[in-house]
């Protein structure tokens, strides 16, 4: 009984002013850390989805995510572009087709509010005047990257939105059927997408007409993906960072004089130490008494 009373009393003792201040500050800092970490974790996850196609001229994904202000001006420009507006017989505007570009909304599982397109549903039609890019106020869509250095004019062919990739097992051209839908749909046909003719050994008298994508020309517009006749497109556009490999700097094309220049100043290194006294072949033949029983 006595002990219990004592306990209650000490509990009810008012906190000193400084103790109260200390506890309050600690609580605030703790809550700030809690909120800050949860928030950071969410944002870090939310920006992680990079499997999406950006409008032409978009900066690299990291720079794009911090520069894009999510205003949707590119999307509005895409919706209201020439040729997307539907007119009635009298020439009165009655609506628009669905635009290529859309703003990521909750449920799209893309970084919220940023523009992207889904090539299979609505590819980029590569308008000559590129309405979406000049509309961008923030520079997240970089106009300069699309200016042809010779003509000083906008050139949509310089866009690098992605890269088309062929999955040959689901491409019926690889079966030997005659299909060149993707090739015909390509705005840069013959350059970005070519047909490689090979003999069909199965029949012995027919040709395979195989689509081949050239990554230095392909803009990633996705018209090929849209045109592909199989159920799930056998040719599809991926962000370039996913679709491309990289050699690195340690391979040099010995047959290419330009590439050779990269190693022009290189010197060979000779290391001389104890082991250098012996020739390599002797060193290898010397088993160090291993076979001497």
């Amino acid at each position: 009984m006595n002990r219990k009373q004592k306990k209650v009393k000490s509990y009810r003792q008012p906190l000193s002013e400084s103790r109260r201040g200390f506890l309050g500050t600690t609580r605030n800092i703790g809550l700030a850390i809690l909120g800050g970490l949860a928030w950071s974790a969410y944002v870090d996850e939310a920006k992680a989805n990079r499997l999406l196609l950006r409008p032409p001229g978009a900066l690299g994904e990291n720079d794009f995510l911090k520069t894009c202000i999510k205003c949707g001006l590119c999307v509005a420009a895409c919706r209201n572009r020439d040729g997307n507006i539907i007119y009635d017989e009298k020439g009165k505007r009655i609506g628009t087709k669905e635009p290529t570009l859309r703003l990521a909304k909750p449920g799209d599982n893309k970084p919220l509010g940023t523009p992207f397109f889904i090539a299979r549903e609505n590819p980029c039609f590569m308008c000559d005047d590129i309405p979406c890019v000049p509309a961008c106020p923030s520079g997240a869509l970089d106009l300069n990257s699309l200016i042809n250095k010779k003509t000083k004019k906008l050139d949509i062919n310089r866009a690098k939105m992605g890269l088309a990739v062929v999955h040959k097992e689901s491409c019926i051209a690889y079966w030997g059927l005659q299909c060149d839908a993707c090739y015909r749909a390509c705005p840069l046909l013959g350059k970005a997408l070519t047909i490689d003719m090979q003999m069909n050994k199965r029949t012995g008298k027919h040709a395979f007409l195989l689509p081949v994508v050239h990554s230095d020309i392909c803009t990633g517009c996705g018209l090929c993906e849209k045109a592909c006749v199989v159920e799930k497109a056998a040719i599809f556009v991926l962000p370039r960072e996913y679709a491309m490999g990289e050699v690195g700097t340690h391979y040099v094309k010995g047959w290419d004089s330009n590439d050779q220049q990269r190693v022009g100043g290189a010197k060979s290194i000779h290391t001389i130490d104890e082991r250098s006294k012996q020739k390599a072949v002797d060193k290898l033949n010397n088993l160090g008494g291993l076979l001497d029983e």
Binding site: Y42, V43, D44, A46, K47, K66, I69, K70, L112
Partner: peptide, 11 residues
């Protein structure tokens, strides 16, 4: 600053 991304704009 630390995530190099406009944090509030994402939520």
């Amino acid at each position: 600053f630390f995530l190099a991304i406009p944090a509030f704009e994402f939520i």
